[in-house]
Design a protein around this nucleic acid. Structure first.
Lengths: 250, 250
DNA sequence: GTCTGTCGTTGATCTATGTTACTTTTCTGG
DNA sequence: CCAGAAAAGTAACATAGATCAACGACAGAC
C-alpha cells in the first residue's frame, strides 16, 4: 500500500519532520512507520481539502509542495503557509471538526491519508507522539504568527526575502535543499498570494533581490549567493521555527 | 491564594473559556478548579513574558486585556492577537522552550500563573483536558490564520470591521459583552499595530465606520448598531473561532 | 511544427495608506 | 480643580504598491 522507498527507515518524511522538532525513540519511530496510510498521487493545482469540509482523516505530504489558503468574500486568496514533505497541513482536523482552510497542491504530490481513528489510537498508545503532534501544531502556529508580522509590518522587498529564508531552512530540515540552493516550484502569483501583494510587484521585488545579488534563480531553481545578506534583508531569525538543535544552523 | 469569586463554580474564566470550545465533565471542572495558581495583579502596559524567555510556567488571564506581539528588527510592532479573560496566551511554552512572542497587558490585569509541572500533571491525569488544551492551541492557530488573511488581503476599512467583529464575539463567549456592545479598552495605536496600518489611518477608518453607522463609541465603550452590516463590512464568518454550539449565534 | 496557455516581464498611471506636524479632547494623579 | 500626559483627531503632502494593459518566452498538446 505504501511505496517501499518511503518506508525505508530514516526516509519516512513524516518521521524526519517530527524528529526535527521532537526526539523520537525506536519504538515510536516504528509505530509511525506502521501507521496505516492510504497513499495517493495527486496532480498539481488540486484541492486536497476545502474550507468547510469535515474530514475523517488527515494527511501527510510525502512529496511535492502544497499551500494552505483562505479566500475573502470577494474572491481574493491569501496563502497562509506552504507545506512540504513531512508536513501535515490539516492535522488540526483531528480536533477541529470543520476546516477553516483549504489545502491545494502546487506541484504533483504524493500524500498519505491517515484515518483520525488511527491517529487517536497512536496518540493513546504513545503519549510522546501525541506530544510531538501537539508540538507540531504549535510550531505551525508560530509560523502563522511570523507571517502576520511579515505581512503586517515589512515592506514587500523584505517580506519576499523573509519567506525565501523560511522556505530554504524548512526544505533543508527535511533534506530537500543543499546549503544555499533548492528547487522551489512556486510561481510569482503564488508568492503574491502568500505575501499579500500583487504578482506584478512580486516580479519587481524579485528583480531587485536579483540585482542586489541576494538570490539567483533559473526556472524553479533558487540559489542564494549571500545567505547572510538575504537573512538580514528578510529580518530573518529562525527561532520561530523551533527546530531542535539548530538543524539548519544557518 | 486565589480570590474567592474567581474560584466559585461557573465563574472561573479558564473553565468558561475551555467549555466554549470543549465540553468538560464535573470531574474535569473540579480538576481545573483545583489547579494551583499564583495570582498576580499587573498594571497596564507591562510585559508579562518576552520573546526569548524560557518560562517554567504559563498563565491564564483572569481579568483585563493583553496583546501578544512581535517586533521587527527595526522596531516596528505587530500585535498578532488580543487576549481576554480565560485565554492562555503562552500556553505554547508548555511544549516550545523558547518564546517567539511577547505578551503585554493593555489594561490592568489579573493573571494566574500555573507551573508547567502542574499542567503536565493535569494533562496526564485528565487526557481530555490535554485534548482541550491542544484544541485551544489549534483555535488560536486558526485565529492567526484569519489574521494573515485579514492583514494580507483586506483593505483597512474592512480589516478594522473584521477585528471588531472578532473581539465582540470572543468577549461575548466569556460573558464580557452584551449582544451588541462591550467595553473595549484598546487604543487606536494598538489597533494600528494589530492591523498593520498606522494610527492615523485607524482614526480615518473608524470615523468612516461611525459615519456609516456601523459602530458607535464613546470612550472605551463600543456599541454596534447594525451587527449584520458590520459583519458584512468585515467579511466576518465566525467558523474560524471553532466555538461549540454557536455560542454567540451572531 | 504550430497552437495555446501559463508564467514572467514591462511601463504608465492611480490610489490607499504612510508621514509629519500639528491641535483638540479626554483622562489621571496630586 | 488643575496640570500634564495620553489619546484622538486633522490636514498637507509623499509613496509603496495596485491596477491595467500589453508583450515575450517557453512548455505541453495535438
Amino acid at each position: 500500500m505504501v511505496p517501499a522507498p518511503l518506508l525505508s527507515p530514516g526516509y519516512h518524511p513524516l518521521i524526519r519532520k517530527l524528529e526535527s522538532i521532537f526526539p523520537l525513540n525506536d519504538e515510536e519511530r516504528q509505530a509511525l512507520q506502521d501507521l496505516p496510510m492510504q497513499v495517493a498521487a495527486l496532480k498539481e493545482d488540486q484541492d486536497i481539502v476545502r474550507e468547510g469540509d469535515r474530514p475523517s482523516r488527515s494527511f501527510a505530504i510525502l512529496s511535492g509542495f502544497t499551500c494552505t489558503y483562505k479566500m475573502t468574500g470577494d474572491g481574493k486568496r491569501q496563502i497562509v503557509t506552504f507545506s512540504i514533505a513531512g508536513d501535515m497541513p490539516d492535522l488540526q482536523s483531528l480536533h477541529l471538526k470543520v476546516l477553516d482552510i483549504s489545502v491545494a497542491t502546487l506541484t504533483p504530490c504524493t500524500v498519505g491519508f491517515i484515518q483520525h481513528e488511527a491517529l487517536w489510537d497512536l496518540c493513546t498508545r504513545h503519549p510522546r507522539i501525541a506530544a510531538a503532534f501537539w508540538r507540531e501544531c504549535l510550531v505551525e502556529g508560530a509560523i502563522f504568527r511570523e507571517w502576520v508580522l511579515n505581512v503586517g509590518r515589512r515592506e514587500a522587498y523584505h517580506r519576499m526575502a523573509h519567506i525565501l529564508c523560511e522556505l530554504l531552512v524548512r526544505l533543508r530540515v527535511v533534506g530537500l535543499a543543499e546549503d544555499h540552493a533548492c528547487e522551489l516550484p512556486i510561481t510569482q502569483v503564488e508568492f503574491a498570494d502568500a505575501l499579500g501583494i500583487t504578482a506584478v510587484h512580486v516580479n519587481r521585488v524579485m528583480q531587485q533581490l536579483r540585482a542586489d545579488g541576494l538570490i539567483k534563480s533559473n526556472g524553479s531553481r533558487l540559489s542564494i549567493p549571500d545567505w547572510e545578506r538575504l537573512k538580514e534583508a528578510g529580518d530573518f531569525d529562525l527561532t520561530y521555527l523551533h527546530l531542535r538543535r539548530d538543524e539548519a544552523a544557518a
